[in-house]
Amino acid sequence: MSSPLPTCPACHSSNVVKNGSIHNGKQNHKCKNCGRQFVQDPQNKIIDEATKRLIDKLLLEKIPLAGIARVAEVSEVWLQQYVNTKYQQVERQVRVSPSKKGRLTVECDEAWSFVGHKGNKQWIWLAINRDTREIVGMHVGDRSRDGARALWQSLPPLYRQCAVAYSDFWEAYETVLPSQRHRAVGKDSGQTNHIERFNCTLRQRVSRLVRKTLSFSKKLENHIGAIWYFIHHYNASLQL
């Protein structure tokens, strides 16, 4: 004879059904009244620092959160909370190695992404130093002049003073970037090859940017945090 189902810890309803298993194989339940999911007699698991370091590395690879939870043997609920906190704390400003005042060349481009559904487009504006390959500017927003302006403002002051910026013919660049230091070029010119290559790297490494995926972002804050997290890692790796 099967054991009776537990009552919901949130609303104390007995209208409860079995709802699969959690990562450790324990029976999961769902309350049909309030929607709360829970396990009977839950036991808190202390996540050690080694596991957290592993998760930090896995977040830099094209792996969905459900896959990371399976590999690290943590619950998806805990992992989502950990990721939320981590992405909230990520610095929203580039860390760029010092450059001497003089000739600086940057390449600019924007990449399409979305949050929640494909109708909610979020454009990733990027600028790369052609010589060092560092990302020197980034902004996530719409594809208007405001987006181009935010990208330009995200560059370190020295770049805004001295750099020559190459971009495609998107009109937002021409109306925002200083005309004497902006060069609009076609993709066949090769002048924006490095930033286009980085866009490809970004899509290959950040799972929520893959066009056909179930790992897309549901929260804009996490979307932006994940991109910044990867960019900081990428820039730091160039110094190794």
Rank of each mutant, 00 (worst) to 15 (best):
S3P: 00
P4Q: 08
P4L: 12
L5K: 13
T7L: 07
C8L: 07
C8G: 09
A10I: 15
V17P: 07
K18A: 10
N19I: 04
S21T: 11
I22G: 04
C34I: 12
F38G: 12
V39S: 11
D41M: 12
P42V: 11
I46T: 07
I46K: 09
L54H: 05
I55S: 02
K57L: 14
L58D: 04
L58S: 06
L59E: 02
A66K: 11
A66W: 08
A66F: 09
G67R: 13
A72Y: 02
V77G: 09
L79C: 07
Q80I: 07
Q81E: 13
Q81V: 12
N84M: 07
K86C: 06
Y87E: 03
P98I: 09
K100R: 12
K101R: 14
R103H: 10
V106E: 04
E107L: 04
C108N: 06
D109Q: 05
D109P: 02
V115C: 14
G116I: 07
K118R: 15
K118T: 08
W123R: 01
W123P: 01
W125D: 04
W125I: 03
L126R: 04
N129I: 00
R133D: 12
E134H: 04
R145G: 11
G147C: 09
L151A: 06
Q153G: 00
Y159K: 05
R160P: 09
Q161L: 11
C162F: 08
V164Y: 04
Y166T: 02
F169V: 00
A172D: 01
Y173N: 02
T175H: 12
R181Y: 10
R181Q: 13
H182V: 12
A184F: 01
A184G: 05
G190E: 07
T192M: 06
H194S: 11
F198M: 01
F198C: 04
N199V: 06
T201Q: 03
T213N: 03
S215I: 06
S217T: 05
K218V: 10
H223A: 08
I224Q: 04
I224D: 08
F230A: 02
L238C: 06
L238H: 05
L240S: 11
